Amino acid sequence: MRTPDAPPIPTRPVAVDITTFRLVEGRLHILLVQRKYPPFQGQWVLPGGFVGSDETVSAAATREMVEETGFDIRHLHLEQMKVYSEPKRDPRGPIISISFLAVVPSDDPKADHLQADTDAADAQWFDIEDLPNLGFDHDKIATAGIGRLLRRVLEDPLTRRIIPPPLLRSRIDDLARGGAVARHFQRRMQRIMEETIEPTQDLACHMAPRTDDSLDLNPKTQSIESGVEDPSDSKERLGRLYELMAADSKPAERPHPLAMLLPKTFTLPELRQFFELMLDETIDRGNFRRRISELISFGALADLRETRSEGRGRPAELYRLDSKQLRRFLDSGEKK
């Protein structure tokens, strides 16, 4: 008896796109490349490209970053974010994209020496409030990236110990509604809105980080949160593909947001300005100093007994984050 042939396995190309953030002179920047070839030739997009048949999606993200920008991110924390599978998201065909979040310390010397290559004509850091219009669906992916980064900072246990609870709760609620992300893109989005949508429409609804065509990968469980059906006929096989993609990055202890963004040594004014940027709120200097005094006493913020001149005032003392002491400090707070 002849065994029927197994049905062919459907295939869809898989790509990666990386949202890479860095503080430059106290402002949050994202790394973009200018496309050398169609589609979107000459337009700015996120670094990324297709996944090879013999590599993981994380390896593809690292390789594409080096090829397109000359920036090796193997020493950085790389975190999977979402799967974008809307069939018409790419004019070349129904290409699935897995997005990543990477965060670069502000004093990383490699980040200042970008070298565009392969299909990228240029590579630059852009202030997130002054971005060009991005090709593909990369506006949406960049929005999700800044939302993920803000959530990392606002929901961090250290932030809860430093920032007054009412202010922090209001900002977390605002982030859930999309308002915090919208404000970080405000100048740029206002320009886009004037060109493309009615001025009476609400900005936050256009900046909502959650979309029906994307699947959010929870970094703690590496599972798929969204229940949105994929439009492909082979839903079951694509579901397995998503699971494999999510399992590609093994769960690991994430670096602290401060360690990912701030330089190795920093002043207390720089630390306060970091939280002001993330919260989009001015923080009283005296209250801030009182709240972090316990961190300094515990050794979680190590006083280096060194200073750095900042303007006309007296030199500011330098500190660094002691990760081991910070964990002990946060553990001691949870046990109280």
Score class of each variant (00 low, 15 high):
P7H: 04
T143C: 09
I192A: 04
G145W: 11
R210F: 14
L31K: 03
P105A: 10
D213W: 14
I128N: 01
Q43V: 07
E270I: 00
E198K: 12
R305Q: 14
K36S: 06
N133Q: 06
D212W: 12
S293L: 06
S170K: 05
L23R: 01
L279M: 12
L134C: 00
T159N: 13
Y84G: 09
P257K: 04
D248R: 05
R240I: 03
P255H: 07
A60G: 05
I73L: 15
H184Q: 12
E55P: 06
T11D: 05
V83Q: 01
I30M: 04
Y37D: 11
G313R: 02
I296Y: 01
G26H: 13
I96D: 11
R92A: 06
D173T: 08
I96L: 09
I128M: 06
M207H: 08
L76N: 02
T211A: 12
L318R: 01
S232H: 11
H184N: 10
K336V: 06
L31C: 07
V181K: 04
R187T: 13
T19L: 04
R183S: 10
E281D: 07
A180K: 03
P164R: 04
L238F: 14
K250W: 11
W125A: 02
E195H: 08
Q115N: 12
G239F: 10
L28N: 15
D216E: 14
I296Q: 09
L101M: 11
D122I: 00
L114V: 09
D112F: 14
A316W: 02
W125V: 04
L158A: 04
L215H: 14
F126I: 00
R305D: 15
P109I: 07
K264H: 14
G313M: 03
D322P: 01
P269K: 06
D119T: 09
R35W: 02
I292T: 10
L114T: 07
L295V: 00
L262W: 10
R289F: 04
T69C: 13
K82L: 12
L304G: 09
F298I: 00
D112K: 10
P165R: 13
P315N: 02
E67Y: 08
K250R: 13
L158D: 01
D212R: 13
R290E: 11
P269A: 07
R291W: 02
A247W: 06
D119F: 12
V104K: 02
D17H: 08
F100A: 08
I224H: 11
D137F: 01
G179C: 10
A300W: 01
P199E: 10
D119I: 08
V104G: 00
L268C: 09
W125H: 05
D156K: 01
K264T: 11
M245F: 11
G299Q: 00
R177D: 15
R187E: 11
G52P: 12
D107T: 12
R2V: 11
F275L: 01
E270S: 10
R240S: 06
A116L: 07
D137N: 08
F274K: 00
L262K: 03
R152Y: 09
